[in-house]
């Protein structure tokens, strides 16, 4: 029973990962691509790991998968902040269809 639920989780995770990669290709600039990369890929990978845990149970591999979920959820957003902030500081412009950029307005004098 739990292995069937685990397989469902793994296929959901694969679908989310696929959409994340599609977003990486289709979206226009760095920041939008980061959105797709952090959200879809984080939860997709977590879902695959959780499915693995359900399939193999409380064994060595299952507990490592659970630990990986914790590390992934803690570190993926931090990497995204770092990339986004670095890109903005380095002068990467927002996509031409962007509506507003408060960050550039506030930081104008500093760089």
């Amino acid at each position: 029973m739990s292995s069937i639920i685990g397989l469902i989780f793994i296929s959901l995770g694969l679908a989310f990962d696929f959409f994340g990669c599609l977003g990486l290709v289709r979206l226009p600039d760095v920041y939008n691509r980061l959105q797709a990369a952090t959200k879809c890929v984080t939860i997709g990978t977590c879902s695959i790991l959780f499915g693995t845990f359900l399939v193999v149970g409380f064994s060595a591999a299952g507990l490592k998968a659970l630990l990986c979920i914790v590390f992934l959820v803690l570190t993926a957003p931090v990497a995204a902040h770092a990339i986004a902030r670095g890109a903005h500081r380095a002068g990467v412009k927002l996509w031409k269809g962007s509506v507003v950029d408060k960050y550039a307005e506030d930081k104008e004098g500093e760089i």
Partner: peptide, 24 residues
């Protein structure tokens, strides 16, 4: 979960319904 469905919808939509920006 909602975030993922939302992003997946935007990415899969043929016209790419986004209007991005940085707010405070």
């Amino acid at each position: 979960f909602k975030a993922n469905v939302d992003v997946a919808y935007r990415v899969a939509h043929p016209r790419l319904p986004i209007s991005p920006g940085i707010v405070k």
